[in-house]
């Protein structure tokens, strides 16, 4: 079909794999380079990092730096090692993600499938909280946490982050697409509210739950402002806060090689969650249930 090759659309679509790949590769290089350089820097000694020019190949201090970060103490944050930080951050991210999902799926279930007085009022109350930015709520919330004695506790770190209008809204929209006949058939089959929830609503929304879990885990993992306010003692720090505390204003004071190692550790868990849950997504997308 030579004359077709002459046509604009065809020749463009012939060339397009190269063009689009070039664009993609360029984009990936731009995004990946800082991360790559973080890794390179985590294998260098402090002196090598501070002395220009930038070294672009990994150095020889990989084992030393990682050993020191994992089992030694990170000077700036009061002798806390990376394990403690990872544990803290994991607890926070997991509690926030799981807590948000549990609370929002239950409230959406109530709003969609039950008829009770002021149902829509409750829905709108939840909806309106979306309109308040975090910063507006943060001082009153802090005061409440102080009064309840929840500073420097996991409860204090996670509880205020759990209520989620967005997730409630998402689940509500999904539940509204579950046909009424399904609920009725289940009722005829003897499924009460709890049975219907566990046998129908949960399995049907598992792909939604997986998607939300990824988003919320990363949201919890990268929390900055709230953990900064609500933790004082070093052993309650999350890895993000610790990173902030490790960086001093004077360049020479900062143990950049350990900062880089900690950064690598801060990146890995969210990446792992995305990679693992992505397989779930694909599975969920292929096996569309409806």
């Amino acid at each position: 079909m030579p004359e077709r090759t002459e046509a604009g659309t065809t020749s463009r679509s012939r060339r397009s794999p190269w063009v689009s790949h070039a664009v993609l590769i360029a984009g990936i290089l731009i995004v990946v380079f800082p991360i790559y350089y973080t890794f390179v820097a985590s294998t260098l000694s402090l002196q090598q990092i501070l002395r220009p020019p930038l070294q672009l190949l990994p150095g020889s201090h990989f084992l030393d730096n990682y050993y020191e970060a994992l089992f030694g103490g990170l000077g700036r944050v009061g002798g806390i090692n990376v394990w403690t930080l990872l544990l803290n951050t994991s607890i926070v991210a997991l509690s926030v993600a799981v807590g948000k999902i549990v609370i929002s799926i239950l409230s959406a279930y109530a709003i969609v499938f039950f008829r009770f007085p002021f149902r829509m009022t409750f829905f709108w109350v939840i909806f309106i909280t979306l309109m308040l930015p975090v910063e507006v709520r943060i001082l009153p919330t802090y005061k409440v946490m102080v009064d309840l004695g929840l500073i420097d506790t996991y409860t204090g770190l996670t509880l205020p982050l759990m209520a989620s209008a967005t997730a409630t809204l998402l689940f509500r929209q999904f539940f509204m697409t579950i046909p009424g006949e399904l609920l009725e058939a289940a009722r005829v089959d003897g499924a009460g509210p709890w049975r219907f929830f566990f046998d129908f609503v949960l399995p049907l929304s598992k792909t939604n739950i997986a998607a939300l879990f990824v988003i919320l885990f990363i949201y919890g993992w990268t929390q900055y402002l709230w953990p900064l306010l609500v933790t004082n003692s070093n052993d309650m720090n999350t890895i993000i806060i610790a990173l902030r505390k490790m960086i001093s204003y004077a360049d020479a004071d900062t143990q950049w090689h350990l900062v880089m190692v900690t950064t690598i550790f801060a990146i890995l868990p969210p990446v792992a969650v995305v990679v693992l849950m992505q397989r779930w997504f694909v599975k969920g997308l292929v096996e569309t249930e409806k």
Partner: peptide, 14 residues
């Protein structure tokens, strides 16, 4: 002690 057949069958998709 009844059983019902629905218009859209209402089979459990999962």
């Amino acid at each position: 002690d009844i059983a019902m057949v629905f218009q859209n069958y209402a089979l459990y998709p999962h």
